[in-house]
Design a protein around this nucleic acid. Structure first.
Lengths: 166, 166
DNA sequence: GCGGTCTGCGCAATATTATTTCAGAAAAGA
DNA sequence: TCTTTTCTGAAATAATATTGCGCAGACCGC
């Protein structure tokens, strides 16, 4: 279960580290209002308990020559668990696929892909994705631009909900 | 321009920090094969030049009570730049919307949303998104499960391409 | 109320790490 | 070749992370 309850300080820690994952523990402790040692212990606990899964530098794909970003909507012939898992396993193997989510409704999977250029993506699309086993159809949409990209959780809502509950 | 060329060490640094954004500089230096001071200078430079945009802890939404994740495909009536920008500005204001990408093709925008529960999302959908100015239609799909979530860049491809070019 | 246990805090000490400084080696150009 | 530039790494210093430990408050059964 996700039984372990978080207090106000834990939520602040998560919010701060989500916003800046490289903040020093001293600075973090200052911001959440406790001293460094217990702060570090809380961070470790949050990591252990799975609230914090990992830390990542956000790298700019375009700066690295990945000019193309694409969302691919995939439909399969068979939605048996075995076939779904098989597709997911393949998705994990494709480097161009950065995210793979199973959806309800008409579309079975949505993939977020990056590619250095259009030819490379087209090759992946024709030789990899659409020709993969069990794939019924693929609809792709190029990303023109990104207006917002803040994965994670809206802690402003977490806090207002916690306040409302009390 | 993105003129500043990166060498092998820079790319290793980016790959390592993308995989573990909290790695100490000492460990990072050891892994990429140089000493700590020049390594830190390179990291700072990569941040300055925009290759590294930011650092984030990856927080598990479900652990924090955000049980619902949804992709919303939005179509607008008008695609004039003014109206597109207006929609983007609104998307940035909605806390439940974590990502907003403008697409080509039939769909104008795709939004990735999180919500504590279905009622909360339905309220946002009816009172916020679908009733917003200029929104023609919204199709939503619940995320059943996530098979892969590794935003960023596939450095294995960067390296093989660099090797091929040399 | 009174001890016992549990939990979490913060001080202080120590180990690691970050950062600056600086001199020297390799690459580029006249 | 000589300069200029650029980048490296050793050493020193500043800052931070981490451990150990004593203390205070909460909770519990008596």
């Amino acid at each position: 279960m996700t039984g372990a309850r978080l207090d106000e300080i834990d939520r602040k820690i998560l919010a701060e580290l989500q916003a800046d994952g490289r903040m020093t523990n001293v600075e973090l402790a200052r911001r959440v209002g406790i001293s460094a040692p217990p702060c570090l212990r809380r961070v470790r606990a949050l990591e252990e308990l799975g609230f914090i899964r990992s830390y990542h530098a956000k790298v700019e794909p375009r700066e690295l020559g990945f000019e193309v970003q694409v969302f691919a909507m995939v439909r399969l012939h068979s939605q048996s668990e075995k076939d779904l898992s098989a597709f997911e396993a393949r998705a994990r193997e494709w480097p161009l696929v950065r995210e793979c989510h199973m959806l309800n409704g008409e579309i079975d999977f949505i993939l977020k892909c990056v590619s250095p250029d259009l030819p490379t993506f087209q090759r992946f699309l024709t030789e990899g994705l659409t020709s993969a086993d069990n794939v019924a159809s693929v609809k792709t949409s190029l990303v023109i631009r990104c207006a917002k990209d803040e994965p994670g959780v809206p802690f402003d809502i977490v806090e207002s909900r916690a306040a409302a509950a009390s």
